[in-house]
Write a protein that binds this DNA or RNA. Structure first.
Length: 1032
RNA sequence: GCGGGUAUGGUGGAAUUGGUAGACACGCUAGACUUAGGAUCUAGUGCCGCGAGGCGUGGGGGUUCGACUCCCUCUACCCGCACCA
């Protein structure tokens, strides 16, 4: 039979579904393997050809592992809550639940088309109450726990309350935003509201007023990783810093473990460094500087305490609490002006002119504790409120920003580090010798750092401190489409957890879900819902990353009603062995999931500390855009000029006609015949038609309007134009020809003479093949191309230009996987995606190349069927055939293990080519080959598996193992090099010894001529590999 | 500015990790067949040169018998972070 992918694929997909071939059991003697794809947002525009790349890779690996005898969990589901889904719903004016459902359906169809082995019985959706019940449940655990820095794990808040009531908070070493110390008496005397406020400073999920990224356009607050360059990641809207009462997660508590945990996982260095940078650990010292005339001190953080002798002034962040207090009357006006200026600057502005030095003197002075000098306290927005303590000691001699500031405002600079021994050393290298630095003068920097910290500690004004760039994650969204918080507030404003047995708190129906601009969440419109019998409900919802931070655990046991997953399921599946997805989740999702996972680990709910053992980032597939070149006015003018010239008409270009104020320029004019031609785009000629007419007549010329469209329409019959001119010369008045409207001329790329006479336009890549335009399809694609005229090349083809761009609708370079599957079959599509290149590398999609894979599949098929008839025999395979097969087994095995899927496909091609050459059609060979290829081309393999007389499914076969014996050669072809350059090859027996080869090599004819008159100095023989003769 | 990555034919990419550079494809050239079709098959295809031969993995230098691979240096491009004290 012939290879008919559409039939075969439909047939076997149905079979797999009917027989639940991909259903995975939690109850198995086999070792487990968990392959996960990053959670997709079901966006409205569906999948393009770049999206399934990772899914195909993970599917191949899952199928491979299954054939290797593993019980493989390979699930799929949808991250259905959150901004993108809602924003999309808002734009098209449909309820997010409805649009999300539609999108999921579309997504599912597209995925099904490609033949993935997902166990759909485990599908999860974050917007499903059965799912978000557990998101809320985990949130409540975070709410009920704090992070103990001594135990280095999360502990119950109830424990904390007990300690507070007995001894206050002095001895508690926790991750906290609590600044004041209090005693047991204090605590016991606190109101409920006050107690709640204090506890919020300890809880891992807490609510507090703080500066947040408010995005007006989206009507919500965003987390730091959702803001890029001061704009929202989704939609690119401006973001401002604004104090708001918000829920947050105390991710900072886990900073250190998030950092050290990276050592346990097999991720790319690029990814690890990105996470490290985001966590941003820096080791230094905390110090307190007294303020002249005030009781308060300024707390600072520095990584270079050694340079304290060079601290000649201090800078506070504009939002720093002390600013209002310490500013002197004399400076108040100026400071207020500066605060107004700094406050008004958006994040984008602030970040775009980092170089601009701004600040203001508060009028107050601090005392440098080691020099005893009085140093001025400034404010400046290069100091950030939420890093360290929001204040710095400025050391202009050793810090570029401090230096720029000092120079700008004329502040003193004292050199304190002599770096002459370390050329090129930077601040962070911590190298050099101290000068002008009191008791540390002469010390090396690392020693001085220690000495200064010791001194600060001795005096009780400072200590060693570690700081992280990582901030707590904003967890509130003032939007509708998310998980409601399982929190209520009583009359006193005290927060209460909704009891576990009341979960989930269902997201109520709401018609007007549009965001508001005042920061009040849409759920606030439902007064009845909000004022529940249990108390006033929180009306913010959770962010998109809430549901996606633990979804991989739900797949293990998706229908469990008593727990997010059973202990047994968690004990069996443990963690994700292989995680494939895009690099865009490098910090956000991956950091949050790791945090949640560590928290659940602390509570004993999950058995592993890191959720994702191995992670592969698939590269982005870009589009290969195609261009057509539309001739412009210049082109028409050049053409007409050349044409007139060749007919020896005495036309001149750009001729000034008329006199004085009435002078004007005509495109072409012939003074002899008193005729002038205006050559312009139709719409321009139309606009000035009558004026032109009058103008030319006044100058005594017969006016001939020719539109560029007319020129293009008659490009291939130029005599038409000539005829017109002749008639004009004869005095005939010729009106503008309006029948050629919308005619455009397209010049084949290889026929372009002058780039400026054509305009480059994107053309749909789906109507271009091997850069040749399908002109029929082109004319149908857009109404304004319907009357296209072409300048073709000698072959009569239209060649398009091309460029690599992002795959995007506006570049007309989007290729839909459905179209590929329709045309080539899913198996071919899967293999071609892999064949494109290494999975981790970004690359352009080029549909042209798929024909190579298609050709291969046909050839492969023809090993089984000759002229449509079954041609496989039961003969014993020969040694050579076995060698070809086992070579392929060996290579494919090795390459799958190292995620080199492109070379696997090459290997299949090579193997097929070789078997074809041998006319090999033996079942013993082909059966193994079918299994080997099954992970890549599951449909076809299933078909052939059955054709070979097997029953059941090829998924249950066992993976072929290669036998080294078949690969052994009798003789080896050695490359013979002279001084490292290959000059000849020669066959030696496989068991030839080093000495044998050395002795024989100089006797080889092809080598002799290189040895003439030279001495053989050395012969290097690498057995089985190569020979190198060193002469000189 | 800092950090990470990449650089190989006209194109996508191979190279067992220091051992025959360009596998496997696309494209191109020539030929065969054919109801010329965007089908199939055969051969060729890194560059220069008629040739012998020479050159060749972004540029320059080094280590080595031998370098796409290791080291130094420069250049270009991509990604991430960016006043983080």
């Amino acid at each position: 039979m012939d290879y008919k992918p559409r039939e075969i694929e439909r047939k076997w997909r149905r079979y797999w579904e009917d027989n639940e071939v991909y259903k995975v059991s939690n109850d198995s003697d086999k070792p487990k393997y968990y392959v996960l794809d990053m959670f997709p947002y079901p966006s409205g525009s569906g999948l393009h050809v770049g999206h399934p790349l990772g899914y195909i890779a993970s599917d191949i690996f899952s199928r491979y592992k299954r054939l290797k005898g593993f019980n493989v969990l390979h699930p799929m589901g949808y991250d259905a809550f959150g901004l993108p889904a809602e924003q999309y719903a808002v734009t098209i004016g449909v309820h997010p639940a409805v649009s999300t459902n539609d999108n999921i359906e579309r997504y599912r169809q597209q995925l099904d088309n490609i033949g993935f082995s997902f166990d759909w019985s485990r599908e999860v959706r974050t917007s499903d109450p059965e799912y978000y019940k557990w998101t809320q449940w985990i949130f409540l655990r975070l709410f009920e726990h704090y992070y103990c820095n001594d135990a280095k794990k999360a502990r119950p808040v109830s424990e904390l309350e007990e300690i507070f009531s007995k001894e206050g908070n002095a001895r508690i070493n926790a991750a906290t935003s609590q600044e004041d110390t209090f005693t047991a008496e204090d605590w016991n005397s606190y109101s409920n509201a006050k107690k709640d406020e204090v506890l919020m400073n300890y809880r891992l999920a807490y609510r507090k007023v703080q500066y947040v990224n408010w995005c007006e356009a989206l009507g919500t607050v965003l987390a730091n990783d959702e803001v890029k360059d001061g704009l929202s990641e989704r939609g690119g809207h401006p973001v401002e810093r604004r104090p708001m009462l918000q829920w947050s997660l105390r991710t900072t508590a886990y900073a250190e473990r998030l950092l050290t945990g990276l050592d346990q996982v097999d991720w790319s260095d690029a990814l690890k460094t990105q996470q490290k940078n985001w966590i941003g650990k820096s080791v230094g010292a905390q110090a307190f500087f007294e303020i002249v005339g005030f009781d308060e001190t300024v707390e600072i953080f520095t990584t270079r305490p050694d340079t304290i002798f060079g601290a000649t002034y201090m800078v506070l962040a504009p939002e720093h609490d002390l600013v209002a207090k310490i500013t002197t009357e004399a400076q108040r006006k100026k400071v207020e002006d500066y605060l107004a200026y700094a406050g008004a600057r958006s994040e984008v502005e602030r970040m775009s002119d980092v170089k601009k030095v701004t600040g203001e003197f508060t009028g107050a002075y601090a005392i440098n504790p080691l020099t005893e000098e009085h140093i001025p306290i400034w404010i400046g927005d290069y100091v950030l409120k939420d890093y360290g303590s929001g204040a710095i000691m400025a050391v202009p001699s050793d810090d570029d920003r401090d230096k720029a500031f000092a120079e700008h405002f004329g502040l003193p600079i004292i050199d304190v580090v002599d770096k002459s021994d370390y050329p090129g050393a930077t601040l962070s290298d911590k190298l050099g010798k101290m000068i002008n630095s009191g008791f540390v003068t002469g010390m090396e920097v690392p020693d001085a750092i220690k000495a200064v910290i010791d001194e600060l500690e001795k005096r009780g004004i400072g200590q060693k401190q570690i700081n992280y760039k990582l901030r707590d994650a904003n967890f509130s969204r003032q939007r509708y489409w998310g998980e409601p918080f399982p929190i209520t507030f009583d009359e006193e404003g005290v927060s209460h957890a909704v009891p576990d047995d009341k979960l989930p708190v269902i997201l109520p129906e709401l018609d007007d879900f549009k965001p508001t601009s005042d920061g009040k969440a849409p759920l606030g419109k439902l007064t009845e819902w909000m004022n529940s019998p249990e108390g006033i409900r929180e009306i913010d919802t959770m962010p998109g990353f809430a549901g996606s931070s633990w979804y991989f655990l739900r797949y293990m046991d998706p229908d469990n009603e008593d727990a997010f997953a059973s202990k047994e399921a968690l004990a069996y599946w443990q963690d994700v062995d292989l995680y494939i997805g895009g690099a865009e989740h490098a910090v956000g999702h991956l950091l949050y999931s790791r945090t949640w996972h560590k928290f659940l680990y602390d509570l004993g709910y999950v058995p592993t500390e890191e959720p994702f053992k191995k992670l592969v980032n698939q590269g982005m597939i870009g589009g290969r855009s195609s261009f057509v070149y539309r001739a412009n006015e210049k082109f028409a003018e050049e053409w007409l000029y050349k044409y007139l010239r060749s007919h020896s008409q005495t036309f001149e270009r750009n001729v000034i006609l008329g006199e004085g104020e009435n002078a004007f320029e005509a495109d072409f004019a012939c003074s002899h015949n008193k005729i002038a031609i205006e050559l312009k785009a139709m719409h321009r000629l139309e606009r000035y038609d009558h004026e032109h007419q009058a103008q030319f007549e006044k100058a005594g010329y017969n006016f001939l309007p020719i539109s560029t469209e007319e020129v293009f329409a008659h490009y291939h019959e130029p005599d038409y134009i000539l005829d017109k001119i002749r008639r004009a010369i004869d005095g005939e008045r010729i009106d503008l020809n309006r029948n050629v409207r919308d005619t455009a001329l397209f010049v084949s790329k290889d026929m372009i003479e002058d780039r400026s006479s054509v305009t480059k336009l994107h053309v749909d890549v789906n109507i271009v093949r091997n850069d040749i335009l399908d002109r029929y399809a082109f004319e149908k694609s857009r109404t304004d191309f319907a009357r296209a005229v072409y300048v073709l090349n000698e072959e009569g083809e239209y060649y398009c230009g091309h460029a690599f761009e992002k795959m995007s609708k506006r570049y007309y370079n989007v290729v839909n996987p459905d179209d590929m599957v329709e045309q080539y079959g899913a198996d071919c599509f899967r293999m071609y995606e892999m064949f494109l290149g290494p999975i981790e590398q970004g690359k352009p999609w080029d549909t042209n190349g798929i024909s190579g894979v298609q050709g291969f599949i046909k050839k492969y098929w023809s090993l089984f069927y000759q002229d449509g008839a079954w041609a496989v025999t039961d003969e014993e395979p020969t040694k050579d055939e076995l060698k070809v097969l086992h070579n392929a087994i060996k290579s494919v095995n090795r390459d799958i293990e190292r995620f080199s899927f492109n070379t696997c496909v090459s290997e299949f091609m090579k193997c097929t080519n070789e078997l074809r050459k041998m006319k090999s059609r033996k079942a013993a060979i082909l059966k193994e080959l079918v299994v080997l290829m099954a992970p890549f081309a599951p449909h076809m393999s299933e078909e052939l598996w059955h054709a070979l007389g097997e029953t059941g499914t090829v998924n249950e076969a066992s993976y072929p193992v290669h036998n080294e014996d078949y690969l052994k050669e009798d003789s080896v072809t050695y490359p013979i090099s002279i001084n490292g350059k290959k000059r000849a090859t020669y066959d030696f027996p496989a068991d030839a010894s080093k000495a044998d080869i050395e002795a024989a090599v100089t006797g080889i004819d092809a080598i002799q001529k290189y040895l003439d008159g030279k001495t053989v100095r050395k012969i290097i023989v690498v057995p089985g590999r190569m020979v190198n003769v060193v002469v000189g």
